[in-house]
Design a protein around this nucleic acid. Structure first.
Length: 702
RNA sequence: GGCGAGGUAGCUCAGAUGGUUAGAGCGCAGGAUUCAUAACCCUGAGGUCAGGGGUUCAACUCCCCUCCUCGCUACCA
């Protein structure tokens, strides 16, 4: 294991086209925060950076949809996301955005460095260009007639009518959605990062890493053994970081080129602001003086916290970029030491979906459960998808909060404080070392091994484990009280009660320290009740030395109130209602009719009734069935993408509608003649279109 | 179909390089207790470790096959 003198910790840059939900939090913000808080507590030199990713096509689409500018979109979500993270105590040293000047400059410099070393391969391709708007068009910005189903509003990448995925050049009569003009094909040059040539270096990089998680390693090796391909690092688009070359007008850096550089520029910006006095350095856990100490120094360890969808970018592409930069440079960037990617968090058994509004949004949670951030932090850490996808349910949330946080830990703290008030006059009792409890040595060992074990868990990214170990310590505290029964002893041996309660107070303070990285708010509240200063958390002194006999402690207060059934029912209902409302909206959106057509146009379609004679699954495919259809006039083969919904033997003998005069097309080596007509609902479910009574094969549909 | 990650008590999950009776928490049942948020504490029931083969003195742990879940990928005229 590399000896880390400094830590540079990043969380995935959230994309600024929507708010953040519990899946984001559990995936990479909470784990990173726990890690960082622990490091700081230990007195390590650490910087924790993040910011919104504000470039890329989806933001421009979102802007268009809402009728606002891309800038307005990112401004809105930047603010909202920033507040959500602050509220949940995600302790970034800086939370910036990729639209800052620092970032644009940094990304451009980085690009130029590679460019000047001729790392990129230039490739010229033909792309649609809108002469009126003077801009190249992303596939989505071109509409035209689908070559397949003749839908006049097919997008350049896909026809939403028939589902066909398209290349823009296939569209008949293409039009730009920017100006309505007919786009022309124009040659354009883009710069590619030759990942294929860098494969060996990348493999060495991956192989030399230690302590990586299985899921991450497996994914990386899979990409590498399958063979990497060069990837365009520039795009013809006007929203993003401009490509800093004179023959690159109207081009921006590919978001996945500029986004990870955002980690670098965020670090730079931190120091810029700090030097300007805009960041006040209070406890100085960012100990070094310049950004290069973190990025360009061997003794610095770079750790990326991300979700599994980002593995390829952080483990392959970004390292490739860094390695390319380092080649021939004396000031070398560090490459990631570890990328502890989490899997996905589901919600009530279903995938979290922004579009269906199947999510618990952080800003909503904060309204419904004010000042209960630690409860969510606790539950999300307990069920974090560290090794496999996991599930958040409100019922489970309630059980964990009530049975674990409130009953075990919250109750324990209150119990001890109340006992001290009752039997020790609200003051820390004296520790008479001559009074032994029999297990004194064991207790000391327990205390040490618990601290050690939690530290190890955190350093190995096993946050769930660490949290459970801490909770277990509270359990032991409860056990100790049950065994020693100070409420009985007080009548016969009050001196011993003092010793028991001193140990219990020590347990409480230790607990506050142990849970600090996970539950910072709770940790501080415990210390307040015990009338202790927060600074002891990061003190290197043994905990016991902070507990001074005779010091007054404050009145107990309940740390966690229980979550009621009503509250949970409300949440569950809210989730269902929103989801239904959303699906109705999307259904309404879908019902937009196509452009008017004519009878003549329609008459060109030769739709017939046919009967399925044979059906077999096309080998090596997921969705394809090869059908033999009796059309009355002939028997023909049709390949249809319906295998997910129909088993071959269930549909033999069924009558169907078939578009008979569709041009043949070879799919997976099979010539398909015609197309089976299907109805599809908003969930993508399919149903055959069939006559309601049996008709002769070849009957005309019109 | 290819590649990757998973499939362990009702639920959420632990189980280095194979080795005595497979673990924890929650939930459940019974008991004990009253300092505390009807909390805590103790005891117990519960698993052919997805299924089937194989290697081995010995497999949850290694190999092969099948099934299921998730992700990436191909395919949907």
């Amino acid at each position: 294991m590399k000896n880390c003198k400094r830590y540079l910790v990043t969380s995935a840059l959230p994309y600024a086209n929507g708010p953040v939900h519990i899946g984001h939090l559990a995936g990479c913000y909470l784990p990173a925060d726990i890690y960082v808080r622990y490091l700081r507590m230990k007195g390590e030199d650490v910087i924790f950076v993040c910011g919104t990713d504000e470039h890329g096509v989806p933001i421009t689409i979102r802007a268009k949809k809402e009728g606002i500018t891309p800038q307005e979109v990112v401004d809105k979500y930047y603010k909202q996301i920033k507040v959500s993270f602050e509220e949940f105590g995600i302790s970034f040293d800086i939370f910036t955005r990729t639209s800052t000047k620092v970032h644009h400059d940094t990304a451009q410099e980085f690009f130029l460095n590679l460019y000047n070393k001729r790392v990129f391969k230039e490739e010229i391709t033909k792309q649609f260009y809108d002469e009126k708007a003077q801009s190249f068009l992303a596939d989505r910005y071109i509409i035209g007639t689908c070559p397949n189903c003749k839908n006049e509003n097919a997008y350049g990448d896909q026809c939403e009518n028939c589902g066909t995925s398209l290349d823009p050049s296939e569209l008949i009569n293409p039009k730009s959605t920017l100006s309505g003009a007919t786009p022309v094909l124009k040659e354009t040059k883009n710069w590619f990062l030759p990942l294929d040539d860098m494969q060996d270096g990348l493999k060495k990089f991956i192989d030399s890493r230690q302590g990586w998680k299985n899921n991450v390693l497996g994914q990386c090796n899979s990409w590498i053994t399958q063979g990497l391909h060069s990837r365009a690092m520039t795009r013809d688009l006007d929203w993003g970081v401009n490509v800093p070359l004179k023959d690159a007008e109207g081009k921006v850096l590919y978001v996945w080129f500029d986004a990870p550089i955002g980690y670098i520029s965020a670090t730079k910006e931190y120091f810029e602001q700090r030097n300007n006095g805009r960041i006040t350095v209070t406890d100085a856990t960012v100990k070094s003086e310049k950004w290069e100490s973190y990025w360009k120094n061997d003794e610095s360890c770079l750790i990326h916290f991300i979700g599994k969808d980002n593995i390829v970018f952080h483990c392959i592409i970004f390292p490739a970029m860094l390695m390319a930069y380092n080649e021939g440079n004396t000031d070398k960037f560090v490459v990631p030491m570890n990328v502890p990617a989490n899997e996905f968090l589901n919600l009530e058994g279903n995938k979290i979906s922004t579009s269906r509004d199947w999510a618990v949004w952080l800003h909503d949670y904060l309204i419904d459960f004010p000042n209960r951030q630690d409860e969510l932090r606790y539950v999300l850490t307990s069920i974090a998808p560290e090794n496999k996808d996991s599930d958040f349910s409100w019922k489970d949330f309630q059980a964990r909060v009530n049975n674990e946080m409130a009953d075990i830990m919250g109750n324990y703290i209150k119990r001890v404080i109340d006992l001290v008030h009752k039997y020790c006059d609200g003051k820390v009792p004296t520790l008479n070392e001559t009074i032994l409890l029999g297990d004194d040595e064991k207790f000391t060992n327990d205390l040490e091994s618990t601290e050690f074990s939690i530290a190890n868990s955190i350093m190995e990214f096993k946050f769930r484990d660490g949290l459970f170990t801490a909770m277990d310590f509270a359990r032991k505290g409860n056990q100790f009280l049950a065994e020693t029964e100070p409420w009985k002893l007080v009548k016969t041996d009050p001196d011993k009660v003092d010793v028991i309660l001193f140990r219990s107070l020590l347990t409480c303070v230790s607990l506050a320290k142990f849970i600090y990285p996970f539950l910072p708010q709770t940790s501080k509240r415990i210390l307040q009740q015990l009338n202790l200063n927060e600074s002891i958390l990061s003190s290197s002194e043994a905990i016991i030395n902070h507990i001074k006999s005779g010091n007054k402690i404050n009145a107990s207060e309940i740390l966690f109130t229980k979550i009621t059934d009503e509250e949970m029912e409300f949440q569950i209902k809210k989730l269902a209602d929103k989801s239904v409302a959303k699906s109705e909206v999307t259904a309404a959106e879908k019902i937009k009719f196509k452009e008017p057509t004519t009878f003549d146009e329609f008459s060109k379609m030769d739709i017939r009734i046919g009967t399925i004679l044979e059906a077999v699954k096309v080998p090596k495919t997921e969705k394809l069935l090869k059908l033999l259809i009796d059309t009355g006039l002939d028997k023909r083969t049709v390949v249809s993408g319906i295998a997910e919904y129909f088993k071959p033997n269930e549909i033999i003998g069924k009558q169907v509608c078939i578009l008979a005069n569709l041009a043949p097309r070879t799919i997976k080596g099979i010539e398909s003649n015609g197309m089976i007509l299907m109805a599809e609902n908003s969930d993508g479910e399919l149903s055959f279109m069939a006559p309601t009574k049996e008709m002769e094969n070849g009957a005309i549909v019109r």
